[in-house]
Nucleic acid binder design. Structure first.
Length: 809
RNA sequence: GCCGCUGUGGUGGAAUUGGCAGACGCAAGGGACUUAAAAUCCCUCGGUAGAGAUACCGUGUCGGUUCGAGCCCGACCAGCGGCACCA
C-alpha cells in the first residue's frame, strides 16, 4: 500500500465532503463534544507530545462517531504568551509574526495527522476577533464585582528594570543577568475566584475526573474549619489570628505576625525599631520559594510589644517571623509551642516558654504533641477532647465577642495583570478624575498595537506606546491613560471551549443556542500539569458566566482524561537543553501517520506515558500488513461453507474482540484494544490456514468487523481497505460493530481446580452448572481424588466461571 | 519537609478490580524457505532443579488479613510528580 498516496487521497475526500465538520442540522443524533487542550504555538514543529495527546484522543472521537454520535472535535491555538515575547527580545522577530508562522506550520502538521478536527471552528486567542471577547469577559466580571484592583508583589529585576515571571527567577536571581531579584508592590487586577471556593470544592464530587486530579484541586482550594481570635496590644491596637486548634488557646506563649502585617511597624517599640526594620527588609528580599522551604531555619524578631490572650488575660510577646504568610488566614498566628512543630522549633530557638495544655490519652505526652487529646490547664474546658473542645472554646470566644468559628480557604484570588506586551490588553482606562473606568463594550477590542518596543528597559512595552496609552475618559471626556498591562493567558484559555461553539460571531462571544447545543464538553483530554490552574479557572469562568445568565450549566468538563508524558529516550523530560527531543517527522515519513499513531496507542499505557523508544513501531507496520493481506484474501472467498467447530471458534473470537475493544476504547485503554485486534487477526489467519471448505459469509463479515474496529486507530488505512474489500461510502459512516452475546455463550467453561488453594489441574465444566454440580465434578477428578483420599472436605469455594477451591484436612 | 502517584520477566506493558501472574508485542535463541541477505512462516523464551512429566520459588522489602493477595491493611525502601511552613 502506498501510504503517502492513501493519506492524501482520503484526507482530500474527507475535506471535500466536509466530513470532519460537526453537523449542526442533524438533531437526531446525540451530540458528543470531544476536546483536547489546544496547543501553544511555541517551537516551530509538532512534537511527539502533541501527537500523543491528539492522535489517540482523535481515535476516541472517531470511535464515538461510529457509535452513532454527532461528534464535535475542534482545534485551536493558545497563541498569546511569554515565550513568543522572549523570542522577540532575543531575535527581534515580532511576536505576532513568529506566532502566525508557527501556527501555519502546526496547522499543516495537524492536518497531515489525519485527525477529525473541525477546522471551520478554529480559534486563535491572539486574533482581534477572539481577544475582543476576552476583554468583554473581563468587563462582565468587573461589572459583577468579580474583578478588582489591589497591591501585590511582583518579581523585580533591578538591573533589567523589569518584572520577571517565576519561571525567569533562577535561585532568587534573574535568569538573564544573575542580579538578585527583589519583590516590588504594584497595583494589579485580580479575579475574585475565592467567591466560588465552596462551589468549586463541592462541585468536584459529581465529576467524572481522575480522583487524583480532584484531590489536587481540593488541596489547592484548601478548606479548613477553625477559629478567629482577637488579641489586643497594650497600645490598644487589635488584630486577629486564625487557628484550627482553638483547643490549645490556653497554651499560647507568644503570637507571630507576618512581616508584611500592617501593624508590624506600628506596634514596634523604639528600642526594637532598628531590628524590626532590618527583619522586614530581609523578609522582603527572600523569595517566596525560600520562605516556604521547611528545611530553612526559622527566623524572627521581637517587636517589643505585648498583647493579651482573651481567654486567660495573660500577656504574651508579639514577634514577626517569615514562617507566617500574610496571604493566608489573617496573616497572624497564635503560637502554641507545646502542640505545634514550627512553634516548638521557634520557641526553642528564641527561649520562649512552652506550656502544655493537651494530654495524650492513655500514654505519655511527648512535646511537641500535635494530635488530639484531653484539654488540661484550661479552666472550665479541662477534660474535653478534640472536636468537642474546639467547638466549646470557639463558642466561648464568640460569646465574649473576641472572634469565633471561621472557615478559611487556601485558595487566593487570581492575579490577572501581566506587565507584558504579547497578551490581551486590559480594557480599562485610568482617569485622574473618574479613576478606573471600563472601556465601553462598543469600543472593543482595545487593539494591541503592532509597533512597540518590547525590549525590556524598565517600563512595560505598552506603557511606552504614546498613541496607545493616551486616550480620553469615556465618562468625563477628559484626557486619560489606558491600563498598560495585559491579561494572563489563562484568561484566554478559560473560555475558549465556549467560543468553539460559535467561533465567528461578531455580535457576542457566543450564541446561547449554539452553546446549549454543544456544551458541556463530554470528554476533555489534556496534561495533568493543568490540574490546578487552567482547570480551576475554566470552572470558575463557567460558574461566573452562569450566574450572569449567559450559561445554564455548572461544570464545563464532564469527563476528564490525562494523557501521560512521553519522556526522552534517556528518561528525562524532552527539552532542547537535554538534547533528547524526538521528532515524529521521520517516523511518519517511513511508516505513515496511521502506523505512528497506532504505535503511540499500543506501546504505552495512555495515562502513564514513559520514555520514548521506537522498539515495536515495526511490529505495528507488520500488523497492518497482516491485516491488509488477510482482508484482501477475503475477496477470494466464495460459496457457503459449514458452520461447525472452527467457525464457532472464529465467531467467538470476533465477538470477543468486539466486546473487549469497545470497552477498551471507551476507557482509553488503547494498548489492550489493539492487542485484542491482533489476537483476532491471528484467529483469522488460523481459520484461513485450515484445510477444506470455508464459510465465506462468516469470514467476510469478520474481516469487515476488523476493518471497522481498526478504523478509529488507523483512519486512512481502514478507509482504503474498506474500499478495496467492496465497502461503499466512508468507513466512518458505518456503524461500529456490536457484539452478538449468543456467540459468546459457550457450552463449557474452563475452571482452575484448587486443592488447599493450590492449582492441581484445569477442567472444562458445563457453563450452566450449579455450584453443587461444579463441586461434585471437581471432587471426582483424578488429580483431586489423589490429594483428598482419606481426608475430609472442610470447605469448598466456587467462583462461577473461574475456579473451585477445595479445602481438605 | 508535606502530599500524591508508581514499583510486575532482558524490555514496553496485561491481569475481568480479591480468583489460573506475565495477555499482546519487542528483543533474544533455534528452525524452514533462499546461492545469500532481507522479508515471511514455525518453535522456545520468569528463575532454580530435572533428559522428562513435574516440583519448588517468584509482582520493591518485611509483616498482617483471607480458602485465596500484584490488587486490601501496617511499616519500610526506591523513583517520579506537585507544593501550601496553611497555623
Amino acid at each position: 500500500m502506498d501510504i503517502k498516496a492513501i493519506e492524501k487521497k482520503w484526507q482530500m475526500r474527507w475535506e471535500k465532503e466536509k466530513f470532519n465538520r460537526f453537523d449542526v442540522k442533524d438533531t437526531e443524533k446525540k451530540k458528543f463534544y470531544v476536546l483536547e487542550m489546544f496547543s501553544y504555538p511555541s517551537g516551530a514543529k509538532l512534537h511527539v507530545g502533541h501527537w500523543y495527546n491528539y492522535g489517540p484522543a482523535d481515535s476516541y472521537a472517531r470511535f464515538k462517531r461510529m457509535q452513532g454520535y454527532n461528534v464535535f472535535q475542534p482545534m485551536g491555538f493558545d497563541a498569546f504568551g511569554l515565550p513568543a515575547e522572549n523570542y522577540a527580545i532575543k531575535t527581534g522577530v515580532h511576536p505576532k509574526d513568529s506566532t502566525e508562522a508557527n501556527i501555519a506550520t502546526m496547522e499543516q502538521q495537524l492536518k497531515a495527522m489525519g485527525a477529525m478536527f473541525d477546522w471551520s471552528a478554529e480559534v486563535k486567542t491572539c486574533t482581534e476577533e477572539y481577544y475582543k471577547w476576552t476583554q468583554w469577559m473581563f468587563l462582565q466580571l468587573y461589572k459583577k464585582g468579580l474583578a478588582y484592583r489591589k497591591e501585590a508583589p511582583v518579581n523585580w529585576c533591578p538591573s533589567c528594570n523589569t518584572v520577571l515571571a517565576n519561571e525567569q527567577v533562577i535561585d532568587g536571581k534573574c535568569e538573564r543577568c544573575d542580579t538578585p531579584v527583589v519583590r516590588k508592590n504594584l497595583t494589579q487586577w485580580f479575579f475574585k475566584i475565592t467567591e466560588y471556593a465552596e462551589e468549586l470544592l463541592s462541585g468536584l464530587i459529581d465529576l467524572d475526573w481522575p480522583e487524583k486530579t480532584k484531590n489536587m484541586q481540593r488541596n489547592w482550594i484548601g478548606k479548613s474549619t477553625g477559629c478567629e481570635i482577637e488579641f489586643e496590644c497594650e497600645s490598644g491596637d487589635t488584630f486577629r489570628v486564625y487557628t484550627t486548634r482553638p483547643d490549645t488557646v490556653f497554651g499560647v506563649t507568644y503570637v507571630v505576625l507576618a512581616p508584611e502585617h500592617p501593624l508590624a511597624l506600628k506596634i514596634t517599640t523604639p528600642e526594637q525599631r532598628e531590628a524590626v526594620e532590618a527583619y522586614i527588609d530581609y523578609a522582603a528580599r527572600s523569595s517566596e520559594i525560600e520562605r516556604l522551604s521547611s528545611t530553612r531555619e526559622k527566623t524572627g524578631v521581637f517587636t517589643g510589644a505585648y498583647c493579651t490572650n482573651p481567654v486567660n488575660g495573660k500577656k504574651v510577646p508579639v514577634y514577626l517571623a517569615d514562617y507566617v504568610l500574610y496571604s493566608y488566614g489573617t496573616g497572624a498566628v497564635m503560637a502554641v509551642p507545646a502542640h505545634d512543630e514550627r512553634d516548638f522549633a521557634f520557641a526553642t530557638k528564641y527561649g520562649l516558654p512552652i506550656v502544655k495544655v493537651i494530654e495524650k490519652q492513655g500514654g505519655e505526652t511527648v512535646l511537641p504533641y500535635t494530635e488530639d487529646g484531653i484539654v488540661v490547664g484550661s479552666l472550665q474546658f479541662d477534660g474535653l477532647c478534640g472536636e468537642e473542645a474546639r467547638s466549646a472554646i470557639a463558642s466561648y470566644i464568640s460569646k465574649i465577642g473576641k472572634g469565633g468559628k471561621k472557615i478559611n480557604y487556601r485558595l487566593r484570588d487570581w492575579l490577572v495583570s501581566r506587565q507584558r506586551y504579547w497578551g490581551a490588553p486590559i480594557p480599562i482606562i485610568h482617569c485622574e478624575k473618574c479613576g478606573a473606568v471600563p472601556v465601553p463594550e462598543k469600543n472593543l477590542p482595545v487593539k494591541l498595537p503592532y509597533d512597540v518596543e518590547f525590549r525590556p528597559d524598565g517600563k512595560s512595552p505598552l506603557a511606552k506606546h504614546e498613541k496607545f496609552m493616551n486616550t480620553t475618559c469615556p465618562k468625563c471626556g477628559g484626557p486619560a491613560k489606558r491600563d498598560p498591562d495585559t491579561l494572563d493567558t489563562f484568561v484566554c484559555s478559560s473560555w475558549y471551549f465556549l467560543r468553539y461553539a460559535d467561533p465567528h460571531n461578531d455580535k457576542e462571544p457566543f450564541d446561547r443556542e449554539a452553546v446549549d447545543r454543544l456544551l458541556p464538553v463530554d470528554t476533555y483530554v489534556g496534561g495533568a500539569e493543568h490540574s490546578c490552574m487552567h482547570l480551576l479557572y475554566a470552572r470558575f469562568f463557567t460558574k461566573a458566566l452562569r450566574d450572569m445568565g449567559y450559561l445554564d450549566f455548572d461544570e464545563p468538563f464532564k469527563r476528564l482524561v490525562h494523557q501521560g508524558v512521553i519522556l526522552g529516550p534517556d528518561g528525562n523530560r524532552m527539552s532542547k537543553s537535554h538534547g533528547n527531543v524526538v521528532s515524529p517527522d521521520d517516523y511518519i515519513k517511513e511508516y505513515g501517520a496511521d502506523a505512528f499513531r497506532m504505535y503511540l496507542m499500543f506501546g504505552f499505557s495512555y495515562t502513564e506515558g514513559g520514555p520514548w523508544s521506537d522498539d515495536g513501531i515495526k511490529a505495528i507496520s507488520r500488523f497492518m500488513d497482516r491485516v491488509e493481506k488477510i482482508a484482501l484474501k477475503s475477496n477470494e472467498y466464495f460459496g457457503y461453507g459449514p458452520f461447525e467447530r472452527e467457525e464457532r471458534a472464529l465467531d467467538y473470537a470476533r465477538n470477543y474482540c468486539i466486546r473487549q475493544v469497545s470497552r477498551d476504547m471507551e476507557s482509553f485503554s488503547f494498548n489492550t484494544a489493539i492487542a485484542r485486534m491482533m489476537e483476532f487477526t491471528n484467529a483469522l489467519y488460523k481459520y484461513d490456514a485450515l484445510p477444506g471448505e470455508k464459510n465465506a459469509k462468516l469470514f467476510k463479515e469478520s474481516v469487515r468487523d476488523l476493518i471497522l474496529m481498526l478504523a478509529p486507530c488507523a483512519p486512512h488505512f481502514a478507509e482504503e481497505l474498506f474500499e478495496q474489500t467492496g465497502g461503499k461510502g466512508f468507513v466512518f459512516e458505518q456503524k461500529y460493530p456490536v457484539e452478538n452475546p449468543s456467540a459468546l455463550r459457550l457450552a463449557e467453561t474452563e475452571y482452575a481446580i484448587q486443592v488447599n488453594s493450590k492449582i492441581v489441574c484445569k477442567a472444562m465444566l458445563p457453563s450452566d452448572a450449579t455450584d453443587e454440580e461444579i463441586k461434585t465434578a471437581a471432587l471426582a477428578l483424578p488429580e483431586v481424588t489423589a490429594r483428598t483420599e482419606g481426608k475430609t472436605l472442610k470447605k469448598c469455594v466456587v467462583v462461577k466461571g473461574r475456579l473451585v477451591n477445595l479445602i481438605v484436612g
